[in-house]
């Protein structure tokens, strides 16, 4: 474990808590893409299958349980509890166009052709594009509540910090995983446009308005 990966995991944890609090406190999931949250639930389910077979550390196990539980809780809040506030009209990204390519790519490019490894690889590829429905929704509505933009900033930062972790691990342990690194770079790049808007607008107290 290193400081980059620890702060990355904490940023990830913070993002999930911000989102859960926003939905629970406002009793509304307006502006939140349910489709992205479904993709995240798929990502954690396919990535953490080794939860019961492999013990890495208490930290590792606890975080996996939290990510799994919170992602399903978020999907439940959006599609069941606060269904009336779910914005169907703006959450229209076709997630099958993200899932299928991730499946195909995972079958073609992986470290080992075993079920667990293929599913892990699929989850890595899917996570890199899982935020697209949310970013698409923000662009369609043309704006985002500031709490949603804080969520996106924390979520985008987590994989950015992981990139620093991978550089650190390559330098210190000469350990690297190209699949995770390439997907992590793609994932972080997708947030760049949003990061620019967040830093130039939201941090100045303005509302996040995308150019129409």
């Amino acid at each position: 474990m290193n400081i980059f990966r620890l702060t990355g995991d904490l940023a990830h944890l913070l993002a999930i808590i911000i989102l859960l609090l926003k939905i629970w406190k406002t009793r509304s999931c307006a502006g939140i893409s349910g489709k992205s949250q479904i993709l995240f639930a798929i990502v954690y389910t396919t990535r953490y299958l080794d939860l019961v077979t492999t013990y890495v550390s208490a930290y590792n196990t606890l975080m996996k349980i939290f990510f799994l539980g919170s992602s399903f809780a978020t999907v439940y809040l959006i599609y069941v509890k606060f269904k009336a506030t779910y914005d169907h009209n703006h959450d229209t990204f076709r997630i099958e166009f993200l899932i299928l390519p991730a499946v195909i790519l995972a079958l073609l490019i992986n470290h080992a052709f075993t079920p667990l490894e293929i599913l892990w690889t699929f989850s890595i590829y899917l996570e890199s594009v899982a935020i697209l429905p949310q970013l698409f929704m923000v662009s369609k509505t043309g704006e985002a509540e500031s709490i949603t933009s804080h969520y996106l900033f924390a979520l985008g930062s987590y994989r950015g910090l992981y990139i620093l972790n991978w550089i650190y691990r390559y330098a210190m342990e000469s350990h690297y995983d190209l699949i995770a690194i390439v997907a992590g770079i793609v994932q972080t790049v997708l947030y760049c446009d949003f990061f620019y808007l967040y830093i130039t607008k939201v941090l100045k107290g303005k509302k996040l308005q995308l150019p129409a």
Partner: peptide
């Protein structure tokens, strides 16, 4: 390569 090692990252 790295992938052979136990996956210790989230």
């Amino acid at each position: 390569k790295g992938a052979r090692r136990k996956k210790d990252e989230l």
